[in-house]
């Protein structure tokens, strides 16, 4: 039996906000340690992995590992009509009914909404994702997630976001991280300097650089990755010329959401 409760729907609403526009379905793995979610977009360019440890839940009962594929678009619709302070209960029996029940209860007027979701096939997830050693990355940049989202929006409005493969080039040296894109009639470069601790900003931009690196990524996907800002106010971008880039948002000591995408390479 699986029975979880969150006294605030906010966390799950934010999770769906962070993944449901790029990913249409996801694999949910419930085990004693918590929930591990994985999803891949239909063209297999991006993969997202989310971990919510059992402590993130106000009540967590999972006496047998349970894995299920769920449609994220349907879930997002259900969660959109939930209020932030609704109490969510998630329940599944292993009675082979292949459904999971989400119950939303609004504390003020006791109204209850119940949604049953049928399990769906998941396209190829879960995958085994190795933890690559830090040394494999030429550079890691930590910055405010709101800043990263603003940069993606600026580049998208400038780049010909209409056409499929608008590319953004992320370059890191020891002083700053640059975001560059080419539009129809020109180019745009956004330079983020590493903040000096003396500035004592509430949210620093920090760079760990082993060697200079400059990699090209699909801007549309990067834009979708910036939605992780609903879950954390910091994002860490790990860059390597021969590994998928990792855009990681730590969820206040209960887990993380990580988006993976390979750099684009010269034809």
């Amino acid at each position: 039996i699986l029975e979880l409760r969150l006294v605030q729907a906010t966390l799950f609403k934010n999770v769906l906000e962070a993944i449901s526009d790029l990913f249409s379905k996801a694999n949910f793995d419930f085990s004693g340690t918590g929930l591990e979610l994985q999803a891949m977009d239909t063209s297999h360019v991006a993969l997202v992995a989310l971990l919510l440890r059992a402590e993130a839940f106000n009540h967590y009962l999972c006496d047998r590992d349970l894995s299920m594929g769920l449609n994220l678009a349907d879930m997002a619709k259900a969660f959109r009509c939930a209020n932030n302070d609704d109490i969510i209960t998630i329940k599944a029996e292993e009675d082979w009914s292949d459904t999971v029940t989400f119950t939303f209860e609004s504390p003020e007027d006791g109204e209850i909404s119940i949604f049953d979701f049928d399990f769906v096939g998941t396209n190829g997830v879960p995958l085994e994702i190795p933890e690559f050693p830090e040394s494999e990355y030429q550079a890691k940049v930590r910055m405010p997630s709101a800043k990263f989202m603003r940069i993606c929006k600026k580049l998208s409005s400038f780049g010909d976001s209409g056409d499929r493969d608008t590319v953004v080039i992320i370059s890191v040296d020891k002083e700053c991280v640059n975001f560059f894109t080419r539009g129809k009639t020109g180019t745009s470069t956004i330079v983020c300097r590493q903040t000096q601790t003396v500035d004592k900003p509430k949210e620093p931009t920090l760079i760990e650089m082993k060697e200079q690196v400059s990699l090209a990524f699909d801007l549309r996907y990067m834009n979708s990755f910036s939605k992780g800002s609903t879950l954390s106010d910091q994002v860490t971008i790990s860059l390597s010329s021969n590994l998928p880039a990792v855009f990681e948002y730590k969820i206040a000591e209960t887990g993380y959401i990580r988006y993976y995408m390979l750099p684009r390479i010269e034809e």
Binding site: M40, H44, L47, L127, D165, A216, D218, L262, P263, I265
Partner: peptide, 14 residues
């Protein structure tokens, strides 16, 4: 131009 690698084949190859 540049081309995009497939994340699934990358992780499956590991």
């Amino acid at each position: 131009g540049t081309k995009q690698g497939n994340i699934m084949s990358f992780f499956k190859k590991m």
